[in-house]
């Protein structure tokens, strides 16, 4: 067991993957000598060389489109969009080809690639570097959308994403990259994709979150317990698509109350899908209306005022108390 940051844990996962499977390679801007702008690929170029840790030109469509070809030829690329804000340049390749090859060729060709992208606000980055647009990717059938929340599940989910037979968009919460350390087991572990985790068991209210928002959610749960005598269960979705209805609804059927938290804008955000699933399956268990604590439906502002637009534990505590005292 070592205590690692998320950056170190992702680096570990990539190192393991490159060691285990000679068909894997990393392809993205500045992933080589530079080790990635966030140092996630640090040292990998030295260990695996320029044919397996490959610097891309400044062309995201090139990265994704070429990766399709690599997949078709039997390789397993782990590609990087330097920031999720530039992943849209690759959108047409991902929507029109990555997500569809299996279906349209009836399984003859597949694209088992992983598309890593740092996302989210909170690091005082410049314009276009702070958005949370997981919904865009989660909306594409044939594509899986995974978001880790801490070092341990980052490592285990990234491994699982690479091992998955289908394409995975892997959003990395950059505000959590170095924010805290966590014990990461020495032995490799894969966490199942499509499965949520109970990050904190509880009985009075279920708070569902993921990614960068999990930390303020857990802080809120502590505060609810210490100051308001409310025992919150926290669910970490881990996979946005395909979403784990079972874990969510089992918790709701126990607590009867729900709050959903994410940094992405509210309209059509992942929270809308969570609420819909709860209503479809567990409406009769609900004791109170569900509340969403999310980003507002605005463009994430430049960083000087961004903190007011990121859900914090205060807003989560207030919503949970409303739901519990309804």
């Amino acid at each position: 067991m070592a205590k690692l940051t998320m950056v170190q844990a992702l680096n570990l996962a990539l190192r393991e993957i490159l060691r285990e499977d000679p068909d894997t390679l990393i392809f993205g801007q500045d992933v080589g000598k530079d080790g990635g702008v966030f140092r996630v690929t640090e040292g990998l170029y030295d260990e695996f060389g320029e044919d397996r840790v490959v610097d891309a030109p400044v062309a995201e469509s090139c990265i994704a489109g070429v990766a399709v070809g690599l997949c078709l030829r039997g390789l397993r690329p782990v590609i990087e969009m330097q920031f999720s804000g530039f992943g849209y340049h690759a959108f047409h390749q991902i929507e029109n080809h990555v997500s569809r090859f299996r279906t349209r060729t009836r399984g003859r060709y597949t694209c088992p690639m992983v598309v890593r992208m740092p996302y989210g606000a909170g690091i005082r980055a410049i314009e276009h570097h702070s958005e949370s647009r997981e919904t865009i990717w989660a909306h594409l059938p044939g594509l899986k959308m995974v978001i880790p929340s801490g070092p341990r599940n980052a490592r285990a989910l990234l491994r699982a994403a690479v091992h998955d037979p289908d394409p995975v968009v892997f959003y990395e919460p950059k505000a959590s990259y170095r924010a805290f350390k966590e014990e990461v087991p020495d032995d490799p572990e894969d966490f199942p994709i499509g499965k949520a985790a109970v990050a904190r068991p509880g009985s009075n209210v279920t708070i569902i979150s993921y990614g960068a928002s999990l930390r303020p959610t857990l802080e809120a749960a502590d505060e609810l317990a210490e100051e308001h005598d409310i025992d919150a269960e926290v669910i970490d979705l881990q996979t946005i698509s395909p979403m784990d209805t079972e874990t969510i609804c089992a918790s709701i059927e126990k607590t009867g109350r729900a709050v959903v938290v994410h940094e992405a804008p509210r309209t059509c955000g992942p929270g809308a899908e969570v609420v819909a699933r709860i209503c479809e399956r567990s409406l009769m268990y609900l004791e109170a209306p569900i509340r969403r604590v999310t980003g507002y439906d605005v463009i994430m502002p430049f960083f000087a005022t961004e903190r007011y637009f990121i859900p914090d534990s205060r807003r989560i505590v207030a919503a949970a108390r409303d739901v519990v005292t309804f």
Binding site: R266, T267, Y296, D297, V298, I299, P301, T305, Y308, F309, R314, R315, A318
Partner: peptide, 30 residues
Amino acid sequence: PMDSFRHTFAEMPPSLAAHAREFLESMAAL
């Protein structure tokens, strides 16, 4: 910070105005 709401559309739709009010409450509490 309200400028983010003001400059989203030429006219603020009701659903966004609701977000803006929620934002103001959150700022006041802060």
